[in-house]
């Protein structure tokens, strides 16, 4: 594996880590596998692309976050108010978003952003050894900021209640808090982060495709689980950093798979196998060790 491929994987891992943090919020803190991620990722990318076309790439990141929050809120309302199972609620939102994303993209299935203003443009030219570090560094800055904000948030009273709701919602209600509202906040935040990741990916590859979100939730889960297994879960900060490292490790695994000659079309199969293996780890350990 060349250094350039390695750096490219780390760069992707950093951007996708933002999505993985979002998945962590729904999957681990709320204990709710939220499939709307596949749709909100593209929503963020589409919104950001349209904003870039109009010359506002940075504002686009903010709007992408808000749009993602909106998508997550819909899933939450379907689940809490209409009592639809969380998995199905997520699938419904994901499906609806497919049409909505096409609308955002004015009916086109893809938007190229070549030679348009992107969030990375102003930083371009930090070249060392033939690699342009601008994307990596800017993404790392965004990731670090979001990590700190998320960590601070999870230590607020609302953050406590959010974590407790995933742990034991009965207790939270018994202590006088409306868990429906907590789930709304959690899923909004989760999908907001996912949408920001989608936006950064769109900016980074200068391209948006309406199908780019397929399997994103699985990649997010893989990152969360790989991170937990490899880097541990002792404290909250450690868990969040583990998710980030899990995302980077996942990209390195994928790069390795490509390096040994696996066709790119097989990658989703690889992702699915990785998640299945990681999630069945406790059972496999018991049986075979």
């Amino acid at each position: 594996m060349s250094v350039l491929v390695l750096l490219g994987s780390i760069e992707l891992g950093i951007i996708y880590a933002i999505m993985a943090l979002g998945v962590f919020v729904s999957f681990r803190t709320l204990n709710m596998p939220d499939l709307s991620v596949d749709g909100s990722f593209v929503l963020g990318a589409a919104v950001s692309a349209v904003m870039s076309l109009n010359g506002h790439p940075f504002l686009g990141l903010g709007i992408a976050f808000i749009a993602g929050c909106g998508a997550g809120s819909i899933t939450a309302l379907l689940h809490t108010k209409l009592k639809i199972q969380p998995l199905l609620a997520g699938i419904l939102t994901m499906l609806a978003l497919y049409s909505l994303n096409l609308k955002v993209m004015s009916g086109r299935a893809n938007i190229p952003l070549i030679n348009k203003a992107t969030v990375f443009k102003p930083f371009e030219g930090i070249i060392l050894g033939g690699y342009d570090y601008s994307k990596l560094l800017f993404s790392l800055a965004v990731l670090t900021l979001l990590l700190l904000l998320l960590l601070l948030f999870l230590k607020t009273r609302l953050g406590f209640v959010l974590r407790a709701t995933g742990d034991n919602d009965q207790m939270v209600r018994a202590l006088g808090v409306n868990t429906d509202l907590v789930i709304l906040v959690g899923l909004a935040l989760s999908n907001g982060l996912v949408a920001v990741a989608g936006a950064l990916i769109a900016q980074s590859q200068s391209f948006v495709d309406v199908g780019m979100g397929i399997g994103m939730v699985v990649i997010g889960l893989a990152s969360v689980i790989i991170g937990e297994v490899v880097f541990g879960v002792s404290s909250l900060l450690r868990r969040l950093i583990a998710v980030i490292l899990g995302s980077i490790l996942y990209r390195l695994i994928i790069a390795f798979a490509l390096d040994i000659g696996m066709p790119p079309t097989d990658l989703k199969l690889v992702s699915a196998v990785i998640v299945a293996l990681a999630m069945s780890m406790p059972i496999l350990k018991k049986r075979f060790l």
Binding site: K155, T156, R157, L158, V161, L175, V177
Partner: peptide
């Protein structure tokens, strides 16, 4: 856990937990 119980009836927002 105690902090959540102690917040009963108080506004739940971005205060320190």
């Amino acid at each position: 856990n105690l902090a959540i119980a102690f917040a009963k009836g108080k506004p739940v927002g971005l205060q320190s937990g």
